[in-house]
Amino acid sequence: MTLLQTNALTLAYGDTPIIENLDLQIPEGQVTVLIGSNGCGKSTLLRSLARLMRPKSGSVLLDGKEIHRSSTKEVARNMAILPQGPSAPEGLTVLQLVKQGRYPYQTWLKQWSEEDERLVNDALRMTGLTDLADRPVDSLSGGQRQRAWIAMTLAQNTDLILLDEPTTYLDLSHQIEVLDLLYELNQEQGRTIVMVLHDLNLACRYAHHIIAVKDKGVHSQGAPEDVLTPQMVKEVFCMDCIIAQDPIFGTPMCVPHGKGRLCNDRCLLKAECVSVK
């Protein structure tokens, strides 16, 4: 398995710190979901874990080696990344897109192989896209398009997959379709999945491990039933709620309080905020 962790990681845009002095280890072989309010730094943290952003200080380690000291191809052979809202060149077919996942393994001496062909076909099959292989990516529905990008990451054949808001702009049925696929990859193949999600209830349904990001670091982390509490929701999202049990999955379910209200993140426990229920 591939181990991903940070040591005293600090991330910043200009002189503005977003994440400060963070020590974090991603559980191997599990689905980990990053949650937090808009602008808290969860996507920035994921970008740093994916080697898309350099730390201001500290380090990201992939199998014990500092990720920014590794070549792009070396990292891509160990970790696949699906950024938010990816776009493909006009006219690119699903098959051509998925084949890009094999790029890290191509060299002047080692060109396209039977293994490459098998892994691409396997990725198409696992994502249900075999019959759409010759369709242009830009002609697909939102859910199909997202599955095509996931198929490309699968073709990389890595133990570790990072996804930044993979359900953004998808309707509910397509959100479930994509999350079901990712969960199956974890359960059936032992892939480590790390993703950013906004929907707390979907996060609890699919995650083994949740990391709540706030105040330039980790507010809390652990199993969904340990992390999703009224106090956490109050402090991280500045929102009152009750926590119920999902009637289908038995996982924690956040129900916003009818009289609760959003407020400025800085005013957490001021008297005008409705008390935590």
Rank of each mutant, 00 (worst) to 15 (best):
L3F: 14
L4M: 11
Q5K: 15
N7Y: 10
L11I: 12
G14I: 04
D15I: 10
P17F: 07
P17A: 14
I19N: 05
N21V: 06
D23Y: 05
E28G: 13
Q30M: 13
T32L: 02
T32G: 02
S37Y: 05
N38K: 08
G41I: 14
K42G: 01
K42C: 08
K42Q: 03
S43L: 08
L45T: 14
A50K: 03
A50R: 07
R51E: 03
R54W: 08
K56C: 12
G58N: 08
L61G: 05
K65A: 14
I67G: 01
I67E: 00
S71P: 06
E74V: 12
V75D: 01
V75L: 08
N78E: 14
M79D: 06
M79P: 04
P86D: 12
S87Y: 13
A88W: 12
T93P: 02
L97W: 15
Y103W: 06
Q106I: 15
Q106C: 04
Q106N: 08
E114A: 15
E115I: 14
E115M: 13
D116N: 10
L119M: 14
L119N: 08
D122S: 11
A123L: 03
L124G: 01
T127M: 11
T127N: 06
T127W: 09
T127G: 05
G128I: 06
G128K: 04
T130M: 11
L132G: 06
D134P: 00
P136E: 11
D138I: 08
D138N: 15
D138G: 07
S139W: 08
L140D: 03
S141I: 13
G142L: 03
G143R: 00
G143M: 02
Q144V: 12
Q146Y: 08
A151Q: 02
A155L: 00
T158E: 02
D159V: 07
D159W: 08
L160N: 03
I161S: 01
D164P: 03
T167C: 13
T168F: 06
Y169M: 10
Y169V: 06
Y169P: 00
Y169E: 05
L172Y: 13
I176R: 10
V178R: 00
L179Q: 05
L182D: 03
L182P: 04
Y183A: 14
L185A: 07
Q187W: 09
E188K: 15
T192M: 01
V196W: 07
H198Y: 10
D199S: 11
D199G: 11
L200Y: 10
A207Y: 05
I210N: 00
A212Y: 03
D215H: 12
D215K: 12
K216D: 07
K216Y: 14
S220Q: 14
Q221C: 13
E225C: 12
L228Q: 04
T229Q: 02
E235Y: 00
V236A: 07
V236T: 06
C238K: 02
M239H: 07
D246M: 12
P247D: 05
F249V: 10
G250S: 04
T251E: 05
C254S: 03
P256R: 00
P256Y: 02
G258S: 07
G258E: 11
K259G: 01
K259H: 05
R261C: 09
L262R: 07
L262Y: 09
C263I: 04
C263N: 05
C267P: 03
L268D: 09
E272N: 10
C273N: 13
V274E: 10
V274L: 13
V276T: 09
